[in-house]
Design a protein around this nucleic acid. Sequence first.
DNA 1: TTTACTCATTCAAACGATTCAATAGATAAC
DNA 2: GTTATCTATTGAATCGTTTGAATGAGTAAA
Lengths: 333, 333
Amino acid sequence: MSVTIYDVAKKANVSMATVSRVINGNTNVKPITRQKVLDAIEELGFRPNAVARGLASRKTTSVGVIIPDVANLFIADLARGIEDIATMYKYHIILSSSDQQKTKEIDLFYNMLEKQVDGIIFMGTTITDEHIEAFKKANIPVILAATIAESEELASVNIDYYQAIQDAIQFIEEKSKGDIGFVTSPLNNRSNEIRKQSFVDAMKKSGKSDAELEKLIFNSDDTYDSGIQASHYFLGLEEKPETILVSSDELALGVIHGLQDEGLKVPEDIAVVGFDNTRLATMVRPTLTTVMQPMYDIGAVSMRLLTKLLQGEQVEEKQVTLPHRIIERDSTK
Amino acid sequence: MSVTIYDVAKKANVSMATVSRVINGNTNVKPITRQKVLDAIEELGFRPNAVARGLASRKTTSVGVIIPDVANLFIADLARGIEDIATMYKYHIILSSSDQQKTKEIDLFYNMLEKQVDGIIFMGTTITDEHIEAFKKANIPVILAATIAESEELASVNIDYYQAIQDAIQFIEEKSKGDIGFVTSPLNNRSNEIRKQSFVDAMKKSGKSDAELEKLIFNSDDTYDSGIQASHYFLGLEEKPETILVSSDELALGVIHGLQDEGLKVPEDIAVVGFDNTRLATMVRPTLTTVMQPMYDIGAVSMRLLTKLLQGEQVEEKQVTLPHRIIERDSTK
DNA sequence: TTTACTCATTCAAACGATTCAATAGATAAC
DNA sequence: GTTATCTATTGAATCGTTTGAATGAGTAAA
């Protein structure tokens, strides 16, 4: 049926081993032989069967990528970062969305192991013992991308979420003395939990009581619509915050539009600060001041880290923290 | 090292063939034997090696997906549709972005063949002879998703782009007698070309001269920023259009904001109609009237079609046209 | 009882590469 | 001239499954 290494060997009058060595760019092949083989390959239109290769070499040059949802703008950016570096290092990507469901995350993980991927990049919600067990059972490197694990042993690439929120609050407080409202993303996600905690700590430090604090927090489900709901919530308060700090950009757009729909002006009446710096941030009026979380870079660095691990390169630190920063636009004054 | 089918066979006191038959849910296994094998599998924590399976069975249960760019909101939706159906039918997805570069598209295609994918879903720009040659050389089914090919032989899933624009124009003309401006997406993409042609035909039919027509068209590169440029362009015309019809939603947001930045009101001064109906359409003020192109569905239907082809199911029609429709929101009056 | 069939199971040959030990030929060292 | 050292190449086992042919046991038909 299809052309195999055997056919090439026959045509070039050499052994399969030699053909294999030519394909793999191995030395110890006489230039003249190499050329003979190359000619035969060309002539037959031979393309090595990656599955057979994978079986024989125990390397598939594919990596598994498990993310919550490709269709999420923010996450797709991560995927793209991974992909670009993977392509650069000649890896293929097997991609799956977990929809933040723990069982699905774990199932997908084992499925990818069956596929004999060389490594896995995982973005998920909270890392449980079950996750860790699965990761350990796998004899391949696993990188957590934009995902927090308490365990020191797991390789990961993140930003410092706690500090990011602290910085955002400091940024806000430099501009305005009023209250700050906070819209969380779902707290089944460790990094969202950390952001909330960071907010809580900061507010307590500036003397807010538990009761006051509670009013300043709106728990959302991370959608545009719940951003709108959040805005209604804050407008319903007796003491409205002067600034609303929001856990994601999409949510922030919802908040902004919710406020505008009620006739308020952003940032004059209420300022809004987002989180992520997705492309959405510039696609809204006023443009959104936001905390940059460089998802593309997180993906790229994760994949690069993975290639290092796969190729046995020295890795100084398995837990990478990428810088964040506040990007000031027009939704704050 | 890892547990193989051989270990299971030994433990259960049966042959590898029997274990294989159990794994594959084959009949002709006595219940009692099946249970013995299942127990052994459980006990040893056996997981079949998909690579070995792939080699032996010549089926990998993975499909290749080639798309212009995962990080594009609109395209990621397609990917998600593909993925959901793939998961349902137990296929894995190998995903790659081509950045609309023809050589990359073709390289990726051949790479996926090397990986022995069972089928490929392809979204690209213009299908050239080179593409068709590659598709034919592959002995596996290929589905074009949201991608036009003139050839009748290729399986594909699309909407009727020509008609969609005709409908949009009719919709606009029912509301307003003024000129219609048109913002194209890059014309290296066949479907964009068709949309433009559709617009041109309609305008000619209503008596526009070539000179008039030319002024009404702005060629963009399909980004938010070029949407802004488009708005400036139209504002610079002596006779400004009353409505601007735009080839994508992201572009349309750019147009809307560009107009608003200049102090115009949408839709009072100028109405805007988008194309795609991405989530962006509701994430802007005014919300965007747009032509729905159901990318998720296109992905899902493509994948379903592929499974049919792979499983030898009867397929009535290899070229599927999905319905489109105009979704009226607030950017038109 | 013999023959013919099923049904359950085993045997062993693929699948298409990689890889390591073995070998032959050429070159260098003594 | 013999031995040692490289270099280029081959042979064959191996990777972990699937799968079709072969086998054997049990049952139904004659």
